[in-house]
Each structure stands twice: as structure tokens, then as C-alpha cells.
Amino acid sequence: MRQELHSLQVTTRGKGLVPIDRPVLDWVGQSGIETGLLTLWCRHTSASLVVQENADPTVRTDIERYFETLVPEQPGRYIHDDEGPDDMPAHLRAMLTNTQLSIPVADGRPVLGMWQGLYLFEHRARPHRREIVLHLIGD
């Protein structure tokens, strides 16, 4: 059994779903591990990770709009606003999604469905540089 560890840097443009499939698939493929388990960990409290449809971009638009309605940015609504009106809503959105994903690996690739993509979900309004830690264990 082998283990591999990698840090993936993702630059965002502000709020939204950022595809991370390609760098994740490339890294897993280069690892030489054929069968195992991949864990992705987002090292932030105002961004998250999701598996979502990758075929129709309107799905991402609808998800982003839904979260704007579910956790609105309204001045005076939240006590915590140290970094602006998107600060506390970003923490809540991250809490409602995932900061960690576990995905089986078979034949040297993460086992994703035909229409499934991996995304970093940025919850802050301004651009950020995010770190995702990838851990792969297997043979």
C-alpha cells in the first residue's frame, strides 16, 4: 500500500463554482496508484468542495443563485462581518456544503459518474487563492 500527498492551488475570480477536475485527474494519473481512495481537503472556512453536474453550465448558475437566496448578504443580519458583508454568509455556505470529499480510485482514475465534475465552491466576493490538499492511498 502506498500513499501520495499533494497541494493544489486554485485561484478564484470571486463567488462561484471553479472546476478542478483536470488538475485532480492529472495528479491521480501521475501517481501510479491504480486502486485506492482519494481524499480532497479544502483548507478554508469560506470555500468548499462539491461534486456536481459538469455538462450544463446553467446548473452551476442555478446553484449559485440558490445559495444567494438561501444565505443572503444583508447588512445588519449577521454579527460577524469583520471582512465585509460576504464574510459570515461565506462561512455558512461552506458549512452547508463540504470541505472534504472522498472518492474511490479504480484503473488509475477517480470513479466519477459521466456527468460528475469536481468543483471548488468559492463563497467570497473577491478573488482568492485557495489550497486543496489531495491524499491518495492505495496500490
Rank of each mutant, 00 (worst) to 15 (best):
T35L: 12
Q100N: 15
R77I: 09
A90R: 04
N98W: 10
P23I: 00
L134T: 03
V105I: 08
H91D: 06
P110E: 12
V111A: 15
M88V: 13
L37G: 09
T99I: 13
Q30F: 00
L118T: 12
L92I: 15
N98E: 15
M88C: 12
R77W: 10
Q3M: 08
S102T: 12
E122C: 06
T45D: 12
K15F: 04
L38K: 13
L17N: 02
D107A: 13
A90S: 15
H91I: 06
R22V: 00
L17V: 02
D62S: 08
I103T: 07
S102L: 13
G14H: 06
R60L: 14
V50R: 09
L101D: 06
P89L: 01
D21M: 03
T39V: 14
I132G: 03
P23S: 00
T58D: 12
T99P: 01
N54T: 03
H80T: 04
R124G: 05
E64P: 03
T97F: 01
G32K: 01
P110V: 05
T69K: 15
R129F: 00
L136W: 05
P85S: 05
D81N: 15
E122I: 06
T11M: 02
H6A: 08
L92Y: 14
D26I: 01
P110G: 11
P57I: 07
E83C: 12
P57T: 04
